[in-house]
Design a protein around this nucleic acid. Structure first.
Lengths: 196, 196, 196, 196
DNA sequence: ACTTAACCGAGACGGTACGTCCAGTCTTACT
DNA sequence: AGTAAGACTGGACGTACCGTCTCGGTTAAGT
């Protein structure tokens, strides 16, 4: 592979400005909510020109997405010994991720903007869901290796079901993240898959 | 119950204006999307003053909700003889409802506004989900009457799971409403419930 | 004459807002100068929305013109008994008008904007110069009535000469309005005209 | 006088860049007008860094002034044998200078910026008017040498009058440079001076 | 028939955010 | 030290909406 590696010309972008914008965006979205957060306010509080924001992100949706979901999914792939147990851990990870204050404040408006912009829609699957999808695939592989009957299951559908359920409960309905939620959701899914 | 029934004084509200606003709102949201639709544009196209809108609805979210989801859920309660069959029909009803052009255009933004406004959040369960919830309860009752083992299932959770999954696939991801979707989603749910 | 007299519809424009904008514009242009004055600042200080300004004036030039040159040229037509005397008074009137603090601050930038906008250029003659032109014509008429030889003089040229000279000295060069200036300028013009 | 003559250290300034900037500035001001011309655009088209401009000129006004009025007044001092004739030639020289496309495009905005900046105001007399002032003085001297009565005339005032008139007609009003203009303007001035 | 009161279309109101542009400065690597 | 490139802060631009308010005028019900 030939990396073109064009020599960068001119003044390089300021990493401190970059970081300040992201931090401020996460703060403001948490304080005021997605709709009420303006890029002008982010610029002012981060002591940055508006151009410096628009130079890096195309708009509010992209900025907030990066600001809120950059705690980079380093969650470990669960390994509890059973499919149901693994799924429970996985669902709990989703719950934790979506329950963080900034995420909870950002999610509904963010998803609406992504849904409305065709060019951003693809990002949801490719960036937002990708880490969880990988973890789910690992969980399934391990289940098969254990000899559990996991039929050729449509893993995208299962993932959408888990994510959609959690997102709807927490993001849209705003229900509290009850501790039983992960077990219930994972329970139905696990039994539903195994019984097919 | 004593309905206070204060006699209305002055000129009664114009029913034609009411209808024109709802029709226009549904049209505009379909054409331009939820975010890009302004109440000023609705007023102008409906040849109505802005106040005439604000006198009846508190804002965009409430107006669009009424404009788009007034085809009043007259869907029949499914009765196919099996829990899985009934759920499949029920899920297909949800899919149809959410796939209508106006609904598809309105849903993401609408849910975001509802989620962001605490006083509207409750409306989602009480108005948006209520009809489907009733149908689901009927389906469960019928299953129990047939002797199928339906444990004391958390019906809210099942409903949120079905709705959340469908909404996420269609509304957020914008995936086409494949004909197999209803069967797959209902299948997992039915098996998951029965196997508990 | 048939005045079309279209019935005004909707809320009438607020005369107090109108006045507040003009007053504030005159203040700000005097304080900060034409170039540094922003319509946003005018709106903020007049406690008025920016739209309320743009609804009435097309831009900074038109607003400042009206704000600064509305003290309506009520200067009397001079009548001293000689052409030179009359012209001296007339030039002094120009000097006084252009020396007022707001006018002095506004003139150079204002004329530049007018000159740059073809649709505004005509306004200079038709509005800005018209009152002085009328006074000059009266002075010439009176001179002829007295029997002074005032050949078929190009009055536009004489006016442009007087105005251009005064404007250049005061507005562009910023020289102080010396008391001898009016006499010198009028003297050359009067002798020049009579001697032809 | 001791010219300090500090030995220049480091890389000397690029004369080609200097010329390219001036040429481009003259082009752009002619194409787009003074107000719409940005130094960034000049830099880009001249393939030069913005700093290279700011290192040599303090801003738009100084750059455009040098770019447009560098045809360095090499106009010959007129010598027609009469004061009126000489003045006519002199005024025509002014007209020609101000009618050039770049000058016509630059003048109104340029004068406004000069007028607004106290430190630039002096430049108008010392640089912009100086050549014409010298020519005018020569014309007067010659007239006196011929025995024409040229009283101790305020030559600054006469010059301001000629320049102000021409500038106002061409630069501000944008009137075409009619061929009779020079004769009329010079005629009034000559007669006005002689008759005193 | 006359009053009363809420309705109506139209559009102006104060305010806020948008996304773009420019000024003038600064920071790279290179010459 | 000068250079091209381009990022930096700051701020104005003119537009679009929001939700409210203010007109003149309309439409009933209650007198």
């Amino acid at each position: 592979m030939v990396t073109a590696k064009t020599t960068p010309r001119g003044r390089p972008r300021d990493a401190r400005a970059h970081a300040a914008i992201l931090t401020t965006a996460a703060e403001l979205v948490t304080e005021t909510g997605y709709a009420a957060m303006s890029l002008g306010a982010v610029a002012a509080r981060a002591r940055v020109g508006k151009d410096t924001i628009y130079r890096r992100w195309s708009g509010k949706a992209e900025l907030v997405y990066e600001a809120v979901f950059t705690t980079t999914d380093t969650a470990p792939v669960p390994d509890t010994g059973t499919l149901e147990g693994d799924l429970t851990v996985l669902v709990q990870q989703l719950i934790d991720e979506f329950s963080a204050p900034a995420a909870a404040a950002a999610l509904p408006g963010l998803l609406a903007d992504f849904a409305a912009a065709p060019e951003l829609r693809a990002t949801i699957r490719s960036a937002f869901l990708a880490p969880a999808k990988q973890r789910l695939a690992d969980v399934f592989d391990r289940a098969r290796a254990r000899g559990e009957t996991v039929p050729g299951v449509e893993s995208d559908l299962v993932l959408d079901s888990l994510v959609g359920t959690v997102l709807f409960r927490l993001g849209i309905l705003g229900e509290p993240a009850s501790p039983r939620l992960a077990r219930s959701v994972a329970g139905i899914a696990a039994k539903g898959i195994e019984a097919r």
